[in-house]
Design a protein around this nucleic acid. Structure first.
Lengths: 214, 214, 214, 214
DNA sequence: TATGAATGAGGGTTCATTCAT
DNA sequence: TATGAATGAACCCTCATTCAT
């Protein structure tokens, strides 16, 4: 019993400890990556920030790019959660309100995760191949989501005739650009708006160029 | 005189040779940078691609980042040339036609310079400080140009009331995104349009969200 | 407590190991520098002599010139310790005996540190700026010490009238020359004397040209 | 005739031209070596100073160290000419006057060739092996000359009993040190004497420690 | 003879990763 | 698990020398 229970207790405790150690490293790494960018962030910086020894780092992560990949996936998971497909069933909230919600959630997440966003928005290439793949994947999804929304809109008569691929890229572009502005240091940007205001503006911009103008 | 002419001839020839060597290295470097990205592109790769010796490289360029900077400036110069402010004098071509011209020229330049564009669009951060500065400068100019066009449009009654800063970033975002699509390898993109078609679509997208809708 | 003691013990041991590694590298470097001179001594030679990896060297020293600077300072510290100002208080040992002591200590240190002495005596220029500065400083001090001794001697009536600056340089010259002879490989020098004998001879040479000859 | 005379004339003229080209390079090299020291003086500096092309340099000298060697030999030749053995025949000038002459000539040559002297006095080691050998040779000769003078002096009853090897090194040391002071930039030295004055002082210093004091 | 573009061996240094304790 | 000393491949750049013109 002491054996079994002890082992379980120990392993549960150990597992909790292990998880918190990982977090500690991930948080330190995020700070460092945000401040220096991927290439100028060295493992030395991360372990210094985390207050751990060099070897400990490799006990929890396979490599420098592995930590980065994990941070990236965390961010992408958060961003994905923000994106909710438009519900066109009867009784669902108005389409525009749903879009407002998605854009607002997305921009809010970005504003709350400036550090990492900076990197994926502006340094997504030239890193690890895997990192690049995942980032591309996310944007592809986002493009797909937008495109499908447009197609649905067309079916419902809201959206005018157009090349939906191009239009979807345009929408994607506006969102990425605002993500970049939000992620960058506020003092460097002429933009001085809260997320709500920004959401309205970008939606307005996109919709009035997209909906069928009677 | 024959002396002078001979000297001139020789130095002119030498100067031509020197210039063509520079070009050879620049072209090789562009290929390498495009293929591997800035950080994974090594001087060794460039000299291998150019078929020259290591020392020769440094005879023409001060450093790896110096070649890159030169390629960047070449590209930015080309792109800047595409951008022509709207002429609102009487007798000038219609505003929309002028915008079409600028966008078409810009996208055409991008299509003709895929390799480098990829890098400035997606890898603009974390490189050399100088490189980053120049790139940022260019986008700032572009944003300024767009913003001013919107303000002018408002004065002329074409453009609706809006936050012009946000709108300018949105327009910038659409252009950057299409630049990225054009720069990337065609087989990776769902986009299958020529520059003319693309120009019409992006302008349509942007204008109908920007002009005052009576 | 056992924890604290253990930690102390471990860090004390680690600290000792670290110190001994530094010594190992310093000793290897000294050998290499002595054999090849500063410019022909490469980091590769040092690590080969020390039996360590390339990176290990940079774990302990910032650069090639940093190791050299440390070796230089070690030597200069030793040499400085040899130099003790003459005590002219009543009851102090005879002046000549005190001078004998200083010269003997100095030459003994040189004889014990041939390798590095060779370098500072004969290669003091054209190395690192800092190295040059330190060496010059030391000789300036030595010159100042000698000069002051002469001035004191004049005040006490031992030393004849003369240009003390020139005389101090002459004394300095004799000492440097004998340092060079001692430092060089014995088989290359016609000098076959022990330090004691040399001390007597050089003092004799200098004094009889310096003291007031009634 | 035109052939023979022309060839002679041409070769004489060519030979003169060649010699003057060599001089031009040697003079430029001397300046550069003096200013930067051997290791920091690059062939690029020399050709820039001489106003010639890179290849031309190698048309006249085998290598960088070859120019240096030639400059060194020029200097040593000049210095050697200053050294005239003491004539002890009846009717010869007084011994002391002859020594005065040699020391004065030597120091005057040094003062006139500061640039190169600096290098051979302070950078004689760690250069080319050949350079080191020649320098050592010169000093050996000088030591031999001094030693022999002392032996002669002993035979004539002027010089006291002593270890002539050590004494000769001491004398050599005083001369080298004053050479160094003279060669260095005047503003860096506390010495403010002309060559004549310096000659008297150093001779005084050396003689009164060397001659038999009754 | 004169040129200067081209060469390439070799230098010092960095940093992600491993491993003995 | 935690440590941090050790590793070594790989990078950028220099510069004496060669060689085609």
């Amino acid at each position: 019993m002491s054996n079994g229970a002890g082992a379980d207790g120990r392993s549960a405790r150990a597992s909790r400890k292990r998880a918190s150690r990982r977090r500690q490293i991930l948080d330190a790494a995020r700070k460092v990556f945000a401040e220096k960018g991927y290439h100028d962030a060295h493992v030395s910086d991360v372990i210094a920030a985390a207050g751990i020894a060099r070897g400990t780092f490799y006990l929890y992560f396979e490599s420098k790019s592995a930590v980065f990949l994990e941070l990236l996936e965390e961010l992408l998971r958060e961003l994905r959660e923000s994106i909710i497909g438009v519900d066109t069933h009867e009784g669902a909230p108005p389409v525009e309100a749903q879009l407002v919600g998605t854009v607002r959630r997305l921009l809010a997440k970005v504003a709350a995760n400036r550090a990492m966003t900076t990197i994926i928005v502006r340094e997504a290439v030239g890193l690890d191949d895997e990192v690049e793949r995942r980032t591309r994947e996310f944007y592809d999804e986002l493009h797909g989501y937008i495109r499908q929304s447009l197609v649905n809109g067309q079916a419902m008569g809201f959206v005018r005739q157009m090349n939906v691929d191009v239009a979807a890229f345009c929408v994607l572009g506006t969102i990425k650009q605002l993500m970049e502005q939000l992620a960058g240091r506020p003092e460097d940007s002429p933009l001085d708006l809260d997320v709500d205001r920004l959401t309205m503006e970008v939606l307005d911009f996109n919709l009035r160029g997209v909906i069928d103008q009677a």
